[in-house]
Design a protein around this nucleic acid. Structure first.
Lengths: 255, 255
DNA sequence: CGAATCGTTGATTCAACTCAACGCGAGTGG
DNA sequence: CCACTCGCGTTGAGTTGAATCAACGATTCG
């Protein structure tokens, strides 16, 4: 209800936000200067969200595509049995709903995890830019393809790994994506999720997440302080989580 | 090894195969006649596979994008613990690896389920067509976006539904996709998968799949004869599987 | 200082797994 | 044509990883 209407800041506020996006789009293929200009000319809105606000609800019409300029965001489904499954966790630098460039109805919910700042583009106009500039279309399509690769890995993670490996794998993925996004070293980062949310991402209960985190801690693989999870032994955590970053399709990502 | 080298039939054999593909690509947006011509002029190979052959292995370079002209194909990951997770099941009319239009290394395995006929296009050339013809690019991107939506639903299915609902949901999805592809009524179809394969798709053991199928049968939701699964009570199965087709983003798909 | 949220812990239950055996039909080769 | 094997489905018995239920502690915040 009320929390869904959030202050909308008009543009001009921060060109730097778009610069960060440009860097992301160029992570694989370069963008022509004309394409960069076109993206800069694109109209957009900046929206700020407090933690745990709904950004989009399943079933709603979606005419915007959003980019995370700051904060964490997650996407989830609520099933008929009342359970919730988080299907994606996004951090600064991620697009969170590029599918709306083609699909006009949301098939899941999007919520802020922390306070978050989104840059929102009209889907129609973004699509038009994809037609006009090959390199923009390629960069955005690539984003959605890599996201799909992550979904596949999540299917495998939730389907076939036990709680310990599953948890370790998630921590490794987020650490690796964080590093790849230039947000800091993967060895040390704060995971801004409650244990219940971690459970909803992993298909576990919060009680079992608690026990599993304590197990990983007792093994010396992670260290914890309140909400923060710190990778204490990357190689050990990687092995525990059966983590291999190749599915993230990052360039220049050794070990 | 030897089974990986399969006879490659050169084109001209069957223009009708491409016609089926055109229909698929037009399911959402029409294609211009120039785009249709360009697709018809595109070089391709037709490859036939016996059941259970590898089509592509994780880690290999992939330069082709394949379309299923006949048969069933599945994609899976093998995890460090030796377990296997099927991440997608494809039937006639599906593209199975459009991600290779951008990503050149396979992040999972692709195998034939039944005897299958694939139409394979050079990824580079297909991508070029996407640049040249907006409508082709749009149609292919849409395919990958809907596939991603299916992956999300699978995460939720495997993560948060019990064996009965999970199994029912898979049966509903395949039945619905089959009908949407024009392959026959959703109420009656043969599922060409062993119980072990069904288990690998659902994150269950084959033993438990067996018990679950028998449960669904005893409830009168499905009927079985050998390998064939027949939907005996669509509405009941839909309810059991908590199935709502909206995530498939089909047009004109009531109830 | 409450109230609320989240993390922690123990006791118990249960859904799904494991292990093991057996049946059955399809192929195959003597 | 039959004996054999092999893959797959079926079934039972026992085990276990994770869920459930329930309580309590810590932190934050108005």
């Amino acid at each position: 209800m009320a929390d869904y209407e959030t202050p909308v800041l008009e543009q001009e506020q921060s060109i730097s936000l778009l610069d960060v996006m440009m860097r992301r789009l160029k992570r694989r293929f370069d963008l022509s200067s004309r394409a960069i200009d076109a993206l800069n000319d694109l109209s957009f809105k900046i929206r700020n969200f407090a933690p745990n606000q709904y950004i989009l609800r399943e079933g709603e019409m979606a005419t915007q595509c959003s980019y995370v300029a700051a904060g964490f965001v997650y996407r989830h489904k609520v099933l008929g049995n009342g359970a919730r499954q988080i299907v994606a966790i996004h951090m600064t630098g991620d697009f969170i709903d590029l599918q709306h460039i083609m699909l006009d109805r949301a098939d899941h919910n999007i919520q802020s995890l922390t306070t978050a700042t989104l840059v929102q583009f009209p889907a129609q106009q973004l699509l038009r830019l994809c037609y006009e500039f090959d390199d923009i279309g390629r960069a955005l399509w690539l984003e959605t393809l890599i996201e799909a690769a992550i979904f596949r890995e999540w299917v495998a993670n939730v389907g076939r790994r036990d709680a310990r490996a599953r948890t370790a794998h998630l921590l490794c993925e987020l650490a690796t994506r964080r590093e790849a996004a230039g947000l800091g070293p993967r060895g040390n980062y704060e995971l801004p999720m409650s244990q219940e949310q971690i459970g909803d991402a992993l298909g576990l209960t919060s009680v079992h997440v608690n026990r599993t985190l304590k197990l990983l801690e007792s093994e010396g693989l992670i260290a914890r302080t309140k909400r923060a999870v710190v990778v204490a032994d990357w190689e050990g955590l990687r092995r525990a989580g059966d983590f291999d970053a190749h599915y993230l399709h990052l360039r220049d990502m050794p070990d």
